[in-house]
Design a protein around this nucleic acid. Structure first.
Lengths: 230, 230
DNA sequence: CAAGGAGTGTCGAGTTCTCGACAGTCTTGA
DNA sequence: TCAAGACTGTCGAGAACTCGACACTCCTTG
């Protein structure tokens, strides 16, 4: 059980949802929800990254938050029925545990521990979002690129991230040519190595030094609000 | 009662909190919370604007969301004790109704209507934040300036906004010189008139045309989630 | 009513990023 | 195995915004 939310639940509370949990694998690029879609399924990632992307009228979609094993997708639907606010896609291959929103709501209704978990997770995700608001306005692309890689690296179990520069340009809300330039610069600095569709993280400390403070700030918010590991 | 959340409460639910409500006036510039401060008081604005500002290590503070009569400040503390995630300041003079977080929690515990209100407000504020994430990455300063003025205008009861260009530059996360240039351009277009410390909104439709789609998107989210007016 | 501070206007060099274009390379599937 | 599509490299003009500087004006306060 790598998902931190599920792992933190006391056995009796976990037992409320266990019968309804199903393990799934989600392939990269899969569209889970579009804005307005009712959230019928909640996903607890065990490994991999899911992106929340704000969709603009012209079709541009930019990442507003990510979800990995520290959280869950659609968890707010445990409280009451929801429509998705964003386009939600699978960014790296994801192993997850899923549960229907209805079943989760019933468990939420019975368990104070689950209520608390939903509450804290909502707060942490909000903190993630408002930090990103500031980051996108104030920080140069290279720092945001590094933050993005680190966040991704934390949520997967190896040093290789499969993604195209084009995709990454969308995530960051910049031109692809800008991503190309930044990627080359980072490779020259020895922080990453990349080839067609793949980025290898070579020197994580270097990335951390180049990333903006938002990386640490978001992590601290999660650490403060979520149950400790183990 | 101009605050939309309070106005929407059924009489019996409102009665739970009424004894603890106090009317207050908050002067412009007042600091309500800094990151990490415990949220002990919840404010329901009747008129005026409160800003949530993400604070960076170098002291820069940029606006990540605003709160006016359509919402409340610190409402999530009704669910469980919270620390503020942002620096929260009074942006225009505010008339508000306030209540202690403890009293609000007790009412929340007893009233399904209040629970629902808190839930919906949390979701709307999250929607506000993720739209701002995209906006800051994708939209030019002029469009964001217009959006900001419109949002402010919706929450106050006249056409004159008191603020300095320096302050606005902080809000938008840009240089003051950029704000000067944009303000002059908008004045030449006849949308606003400004003088030392004051902006008058002259042609609201013109501002709406120049603002980015995020203004409408955020409003639609609030309209969908909050109880209708009257 | 003089002084000081706060707010604004303006300039210019420099950087970052956009935007469109096109060529080259790798991968996939018919 | 060949064609088509997906992905990357590169170029260059131009727009947007930064950053530092300085002058000026208005307002407040002693």
């Amino acid at each position: 059980m790598r998902n931190r939310l599920l792992a933190s639940l006391p056995a009796e509370d976990y037992a409320l949802i266990a019968p309804h949990l199903t393990a799934v694998e989600l392939e990269r690029g899969r569209l889970l929800y579009d804005p307005g879609d009712p959230i019928e399924t909640i996903y607890f990632p065990q490994d991999g990254v899911i992106s929340l992307m704000t969709l603009m009228e012209n079709g541009a979609a930019i990442e507003s938050a990510t979800i990995g094993r520290e959280g869950a997708l659609g968890l707010m639907a445990a409280v009451s029925p929801r429509q998705s606010l964003s386009r939600i896609i699978v960014q790296t291959p994801v192993k997850a545990t899923r549960i229907g929103a209805g079943a989760m709501h019933e468990a939420w209704d019975k368990s104070a521990a689950i209520k608390d978990l939903v509450d804290k997770h909502t707060e942490a995700l909000f903190g993630h979002a408002i930090q990103s608001v500031a980051c996108n306005a104030l920080h140069p692309v290279e720092a945001r690129f590094c933050r993005w890689l680190l966040t991704c690296h934390d949520r997967i179990s190896n040093d290789t991230v499969a993604l195209t520069q084009e995709f990454l340009a969308d995530m960051l809300g910049v031109q692809r040519t800008t991503v190309t330039a930044v990627a080359r610069s980072l490779q020259e600095k020895g922080a990453i190595r990349y080839r067609r569709g793949v980025v290898d993280i070579i020197d994580r400390p270097a990335l951390e030094a180049l990333a903006c403070e938002c990386y640490g700030a978001i992590n601290r918010t999660y650490e403060r609000l979520l149950p400790p590991e183990h």
